[in-house]
């Protein structure tokens, strides 16, 4: 059964040699932080549907400034003005850099 399982996996899933092992604690922390956005914005910020914006591949400065505008009450929102207040300056910069570096 085990052999069949691996065989099925090998056939079905591409194996990347340049494995993105999250061996670095900071990198793992960043992915964990970004995952707090994924519930509403999709895994790695790749959104389902048109209602909520995709984050992956967006401009770094744009993501950071939007978050700060929500946090400071300068941009109207339904929920983001409440959620953005939960993140520090450093976390906002980290999130912006992470999502900007992803491909949409």
């Amino acid at each position: 059964m085990r052999t069949r399982y691996w065989a099925a996996c090998l056939a079905a899933v591409p194996v990347l040699i340049s494995a993105a092992l999250a061996q670095d604690a900071t990198a793992l922390r960043t992915r964990g932080l970004a995952a707090t956005c994924a519930n509403c914005h999709g895994t790695d910020g790749r959104t389902q549907g048109e209602t909520v914006p995709t984050l992956a591949g967006r401009d770094r400065e744009l993501i950071a400034s939007r978050l700060r505008e929500f946090r400071d009450g300068k941009r109207p929102a339904t929920v983001m003005h409440q959620l953005a207040k939960g993140y520090t300056e450093e976390q906002i910069d980290t999130l912006a850099a992470y999502f900007a570096a992803l491909k949409n």
Partner: peptide
């Protein structure tokens, strides 16, 4: 390096049975 890797993972969906 990690971010590039993370992006690659995102594109492929996952590493699957790596």
């Amino acid at each position: 390096r990690f971010l590039q890797g993370a992006a690659a993972v995102g594109i492929s969906g996952s590493l699957g049975c790596a």
